[in-house]
């Protein structure tokens, strides 16, 4: 049942991770690997596009928590975009909007990264 896919794009100093399907305790390690690879490659400007993310469990949310500290220490950020209402609700319940920048569109997050880079 739990079908999960990660697509990785690179563009203008920002790495975009697209999530698709169910992100739960079983599939969370895949996302961990993806983050770890970005960190190893010293790519700290990360956008996670959740357009096709159908479900996220607490274990899935934990993955973001595991890496945000390291990313921010390196003057980068993980920004979340394009969430469905249902997925947003899960993030929202836990209070993630207080900790992460969540945007409706990927473009907004990109612009945000660019303005910081310019500054």
């Amino acid at each position: 049942m739990a079908d999960f896919k990660i697509n990785h794009r690179e563009g203008e100093g920002v790495s975009v991770i697209e999530l698709k399907g169910y992100l739960d305790a079983h599939t969370a390690p895949e996302l961990e690997t993806a983050f770890q690879r970005l960190l190893n490659d010293k790519k700290f400007n990360i956008i996670v596009n959740c357009r096709d993310l159908a479900y996220i469990s607490s274990a899935g949310l934990g993955v973001f928590m595991a890496y945000i500290e390291d990313v921010r220490k390196n003057k980068g950020d993980i920004k979340l975009t394009n969430m469905s209402a249902k997925v947003y609700n899960v993030f929202d319940l836990l209070g993630f909007p207080l900790l992460y920048e969540i945007y409706k569109e990927e473009k907004e997050a990109l612009t945000k990264f660019k303005t910081i880079q310019r500054a």
């Binding site: 209070g95 207080l98 900790l99």
Partner: peptide, 17 residues
């Protein structure tokens, strides 16, 4: 009521939220 999960953020943000 608004509130963050335990263990997500340090004292100040947690307390504020």
């Amino acid at each position: 009521p608004s509130g963050l999960g335990l263990g997500l953020a340090n004292g100040e943000i947690f307390e504020r939220s």
